[in-house]
Design a protein around this nucleic acid. Sequence first.
DNA 1: CTCCAGGGCAAAT
DNA 2: ATTTGCCATGGA
Length: 299
Amino acid sequence: MNKYIVSIPLESSFSFTECLWFLNRNFDDCLHTIYSDRVRKPLFINGKLILTDIFQKSDQLFIEIISGDFDESDAPLIQEYISEWFDLNRDITPFYRLLSKDPRFSYMNQEFAGLRLIGIPDLFEALCWGIIGQQINLTFAYKLKRRLVEKYGTHMTFENEEYHIFPTCEALARVDPEELRAMQFSAKKAEYLIGLAGIFVKKKLSKEILTALPDFLSRQKALTSVKGIGIWTANYALMKSLKEQSCIPYGDAGLMQALFSHQVIETKKDTQPINRFFRDFAGWESYLVFYLWRSLAKK
DNA sequence: CTCCAGGGCAAAT
DNA sequence: ATTTGCCATGGA
């Protein structure tokens, strides 16, 4: 087949290297593969599977379609997906001005320069990932995700490697909870995931429905009314999928750890000063949370 | 061995 | 209204 390439112009405050580093940090994510200077990811676009290689050249991000049935009319959706994934449509220089005002965080300006809030454009995937990750350590969470994806997701093969897509809600809705139990999901998580899938199948919830709601609070409420989605998962999904800018995932163990190590709080369970602390970062709470998570990863 | 990880729910105060 | 017990597993 011919090689198709889609491109997206970049601003100077973007670092592909930092984004790749985050995607590749300490964990085994089954939904993308990092090579030295590019990331390979399968996408489900207009009902078709395509495999993409994403890399930077000067001031543009290139998406090369290396396999699958692609035509020109797919380009806008691909651009949209990648832009959301890497949060390309945002000027983050105001955030850096806020960071530089606080001696505890000003180092992030240089160390993480150009890192964008890496998203999960698909809302169903973001919510499932949130539920999977509840309470357990991330190594185990990624292991569970891999089992789920490899069993119920679709995949494509390229040069003897398999590239996986997150399962659709239709596929998960018909799973027997006992199957997930056998894969070491807790009984509750199995029930939550299958229940959530059913809600998506019935179109009672979708990214479009959520986006159409009038404000942050009503979106939060729509999510927390679902069994298995509490305030943490709701805010996590709103941050990662809808790119809401003022999400504080209350109760997050990693956030508390990072606030402790940056001397914002005295002990890891000291939840009181959080709201007051975040007031100085109004409009950039999500970004600060993301950068604090980034600070937890070991070089 | 115990404790705790990118929580949430239902039952018990 | 707020707190407590439980969940699944693995690494520290």
